[in-house]
Design a protein around this nucleic acid. Structure first.
Lengths: 150, 150
DNA sequence: TTAATTTAGATGTATATACATGTATTGGTA
DNA sequence: TACCAATACATGTATATACATCTAAATTAA
């Protein structure tokens, strides 16, 4: 990381860990986006599809999708716009509550997701060079680090 | 994290770690941006100022700034545009190589950076709840995780 | 039942990200 | 020297992020 951001002096190890997390996330997101590119999907579009898959063939409202996104400030209606243009999802007004827009995967969306999920999972397995045990420790450390979460 | 993204089942610990890193980075970036907001700076604008500080009072060319950014795909000329409008940096053509644009902190930029750096460092110290030892371990794990870096 | 408040999501704006292209300058090569 | 490739950066485009505002529908209160 020192090499990546051309910096060797950090205030302390915690400060360095903060930058390291930001850098690692960027690195991971970049490889991920790269892998999805040949399918014409962005990282965020993939995430929405993946979330929809969790309930498929049931529909989900925009709000439910949003609260499952990793980046909470994602603008889900706009991401859905793009998926709808590509016929990967279908919008409909909820009959239960007319304010809600229900989103459902199309057959094309489901198919594309299956292929890309395989690719994405492979990427995670190949790219992330930690053992199961180390990953567990990493998860614990990250949870502890974020304990002041609001 | 499971609560944050409403998901409890992951393919394996490594997969979970990947999402955990992405989520933690988002969380960190958000608190960071929040803290900078009252100074009218974005996260990225702050980063450029901080990088310039490292060489101050010397100037730096756009390329040198870019390769020190955490997010390598940052569009530095555009970020500099915004800093220049706010009179926090000054652009000039390099006399050494007329293709290069040299960037230098102004007195206002230096002052603002000093105040915001204090805030940012405080945030890191308060927000990141790990000991020095844990941070060290976290750094090692992240470096290992990224060993397939290109 | 009407009015006020809340909620869902669409839409607008500024900035950033990711990447492609354009322009000027430089350095290498015939 | 003249030409060509490479480099530095500016600029254009599509999408995303972060946040504000708007509209319609539902809920609550008067």
């Amino acid at each position: 990381m020192e090499q990546a951001i051309q910096s060797t002096k950090f205030k302390n190890e915690t400060h360095k860990a903060g930058l390291n997390i930001l850098y690692t996330a960027w690195w991971l997101k970049t490889s991920f986006s790269q892998a999805l590119k040949e399918y014409g999907l962005t990282h965020e579009q993939y995430n929405v599809l993946r979330i929809l898959k969790g309930k498929h063939p049931e529909q989900m409202c925009v709000r439910d999708i949003a609260c499952r996104m990793i980046e909470k400030s994602s603008n889900v209606p706009r991401i859905v716009d793009r998926l709808e243009i590509k016929k990967l999802v279908k919008r409909s007004v909820s009959s239960f509550d007319k304010r809600e827009t229900m989103i459902q995967l199309t057959a094309a969306g489901l198919l594309l997701l299956e292929v890309t999920t395989k690719k994405a999972d492979e990427l995670f397995d190949i790219q992330l060079c930690v053992t199961d045990e180390e990953a567990k420790l990493l998860n614990e450390l990250l949870e502890k680090l974020r304990q002041k979460e609001v």
